Simulated scan of single mutants.
Amino acid sequence: MSSIQFGSLFYLVMLAVFIGGTLVVSYRGRRGTMFQHAAIWGLILLGTVAAIGLWGDIRHTVVPVQRVQNGVIEVPRSNDGHYYLTAEINGTPIRMIVDTGATDMVLRHEDAEKAGIDLNGLRYFGSAKTANGAVRIAPVTLDSVTLGPVTDEGFRAFVSEGEMPGSLMGMTYLQQFSRMSFENGALVLER
């Protein structure tokens, strides 16, 4: 144990002794109340640790998700200001960022692999301009793209060679909807 670690441990022990001593003196003659308050604070601490540990699972249940009603797809705006939708690419659900500034649908490597695209057979001869600079892209033809009640077959998309925060749903796909609007904080798509 280094001297810094020993010093930190000594400090924490002294702090615990001081706080413990203060509590014992202030609760003198009221042990039941002291144990009750200690139990309450212990449960608060335990609940906080559990919430931090489970935050990833909690966040996915709290985050707004897309809805389909009467053939209309509503995609709520996320807390970060983006619209995220889940489309089935070749039968596999892929979470995508709606990007009205992107021309094409662009899949990141991980999502293309999940959708069953052979990454070894791709030829990166195109390029796309992104916020992070130019990246090479490879054209692919997707067997199917399903979004809500709509399925398109033989859809042309691209796989990015560079790192991306998520796959992009660009305008070539979105323009296939007869209506695309932003209403009450949601992207509304209808064919």
Rank of each mutant, 00 (worst) to 15 (best):
S178P: 05
G170V: 04
G126F: 00
S178M: 10
A115S: 11
F125D: 15
V145M: 10
G148L: 09
V159A: 06
D152E: 14
T151F: 12
T172W: 09
S181R: 13
T130Y: 07
L119K: 07
L122K: 00
M180T: 10
G166T: 07
L119S: 02
F177V: 09
E153H: 15
D118R: 04
F125C: 09
K129F: 14
P165Y: 02
R136I: 00
N120M: 11
G154I: 07
A131G: 11
P149L: 09
E161Q: 10
I137W: 03
T130M: 09
S181H: 09
L142R: 10
L119R: 04
V140N: 01
T130S: 13
R156D: 15
G185H: 03
L168Q: 02
E163T: 14
L122H: 02
F125P: 02
T151M: 12
I137C: 09
I117T: 05
L174V: 13
F125S: 15
A131P: 09
F177W: 14
G121M: 08
L168K: 05
P165W: 05
G121F: 00
A138F: 01
D118C: 02
N184I: 07
M171Q: 10
R156F: 13
F155M: 12
T130N: 08
L168F: 07
V135R: 01
R156V: 13
M169H: 01
F155R: 08
L147Q: 07
S144Y: 03
A115F: 03
N120C: 07
